[in-house]
Simulated assay, not measured.
Amino acid sequence: MNNDNNNDDNEVTMVKVQYDNDYCIGYLKGRILHRLNGPAFIHHYESGLVECESWYINGKLHRLDGPAKIEYYESGLVKSESWYINGKLHRLDAPAKIYYQIDGSIHKEYWYVAGKKHRLFDHTVDYSKIIKVESGVWFDD
């Protein structure tokens, strides 16, 4: 397979695996997941809609221009996003892992740098415990 004449993707093979009612598509370089210009692993719901997309380079979750793993609800809305660099959760300017409610609102956030919990911020925010009171935001212990 040749994507945009990129030599690193010249030997990448697309494989489709069918389960009972759903299926996965993987892009393999040898025996490892690898793709430079899109997700290397895509899992589909029975309906055909995408359940999960994961970007891999040389077998490690990795993406510079967005989350390396995105999970979706059957409705198509984003369920979670995870940012990885070289197989480690990593994001400097925002949470590296975000979970969303079915309505699209944020449920939880986790902050990581180079695979370690980021200490400059409260590294876990659980929005289900936030109670809005008039003009302030209060946290329920």
Rank of each mutant, 00 (worst) to 15 (best):
Y27T: 01
I70N: 00
K29W: 00
I57L: 15
K117E: 10
V78Q: 02
I32L: 14
E71C: 09
Y110G: 15
I85K: 14
E81I: 00
V15G: 09
I57G: 01
Y19W: 15
W55H: 14
N7I: 15
H62C: 05
H90P: 03
Y100G: 13
D22F: 02
A114H: 09
F41C: 02
Y127V: 01
E81Q: 13
E71H: 13
R35N: 15
G26F: 04
Q18A: 13
H44E: 03
I85C: 03
F121H: 07
N10V: 00
Y27C: 02
D20N: 15
V113F: 00
H123T: 03
I131G: 04
Y23G: 01
H43A: 08
K116T: 12
Y127E: 08
R63I: 03
K60D: 01
H90W: 08
W83N: 03
E51Y: 04
A114P: 00
N5M: 12
P67Y: 15
G38N: 07
E53L: 04
S105C: 12
R35T: 06
K16D: 15
K88D: 02
G76S: 09
G26V: 14
N2F: 08
S128T: 14
D9F: 04
V15M: 11
A114N: 15
L28A: 14
I85E: 05
K132R: 12
C24W: 04
N37K: 08
A96L: 11
I25E: 09
N7W: 14
L77I: 08
I32R: 10
E51V: 09
I70F: 02
C52E: 01
G30D: 12
G104V: 13
L64S: 14
I85G: 01
G66Y: 12
G136F: 07
H107A: 13
Y84G: 00
E46W: 08
S80R: 11
K60P: 04
L33S: 12
S54R: 09
Y73G: 06
V125R: 05
Q101T: 11
K129N: 00
D4M: 03
R35Y: 06
A40L: 07
E46G: 03
I131T: 06
V133S: 12
V113D: 01
E74M: 09
Y100I: 13
I131H: 01
F121E: 10
Y72P: 11
I25P: 10
I70G: 05
N86M: 07
N37M: 00
S75R: 10
V12W: 03
E81F: 02
S105M: 08
A94G: 14
